[in-house]
Amino acid sequence: MYDKEMLKHVLSAYGPSGREETASEVIKSYVAPYADEVYNDRLGNLIAVKKGTSGKKIMFSAHMDQIGLCVVDIDEKGFLRVTNVGGVNPIISIAREVVFKNGTRGVTFFETEKGAKETTMATLFVDIGCESYEEAAAKVDIGDMCIFAGNFVEMGNKISSPYMDDRIACAALIEAFRTMKSEHDVYAVFTVQEEVGLRGAGPAAFAIEPDINISCDVCGMGDIPNCVRMSVKLGEGATVKAMDSSVIVPVKVREFLKNAADKRGIKWQNEILRSGGTDTGAAQRAGKGTFSGCVSIPTRYIHAPIETIDVRDYEAAVALLRAAAEEKELPRV
């Protein structure tokens, strides 16, 4: 059974891209007791290390940043204008509750002169309940970021929450890190700024120079009504990525993950993510290059504040990350 309190805590921690400190502190509190060393690098990536004896290094990475909205202007009536941090769809950003780092709450809406469907970032605004520029500016500054507030909703085997992407993978990596026994040096890297261009994972891989990197992220699926065709289904297991827009995973790495899963009876499925990139590619191309693969948790409604996963896939991902760390032989050139 998974650690629900930890999961809720990690899912709800504040940390839009570039402002990951709070999320980093929360994650650190869960991994530090199990690590030989924990540090943040210059970019803010949180790195927890467990020493092994094989002389080899295995890196795991999950991004701790989340998409959000950044304040660009405050008008004389105290309404906030915002721009997107990462891939935010303006139309599904209306009529949402948001929250700032300092706890300031707000709601979003659109200029009603036009229809909701015509909403753009320029016509979206945030109402924090203030009546003047001064009152609003005392609570929120230009450059401050808010995230979508939301709940932890349990629906049978499914859970919904605004930021499964990618906190569900952070939680999976925490769970795996706490229990894994590896011969290799294990680097659990909670990366920054994935949502704004896969910025954190490359420098981390460059510094660590691992023998292999396994990223953990969410991926789309093809099992909701009339959606884009994709073979991945919720409840069918964690995925072993074949490719996405940032990476083509070497067959050797895919086989490594599949074998690790099959040996232990862990349920997995093949994944081709049709659009969107992941830290997998950034880690692969850092410096002299790294074997890089990815285990994903199938997720419905990615980048909408009701991202939904299946607990069984989450548990399979935890098991598969742990299994990869416990493999003696890592892929070789």
Binding site: S246, V247, I248, G281, Q284, R285, G287, K288, G289
Partner: peptide
Amino acid sequence: TQEEGPNFGASCGSWN
């Protein structure tokens, strides 16, 4: 490798 895609071969090859 990968010239038609993410150009991994060229960057990795030059660094190596």
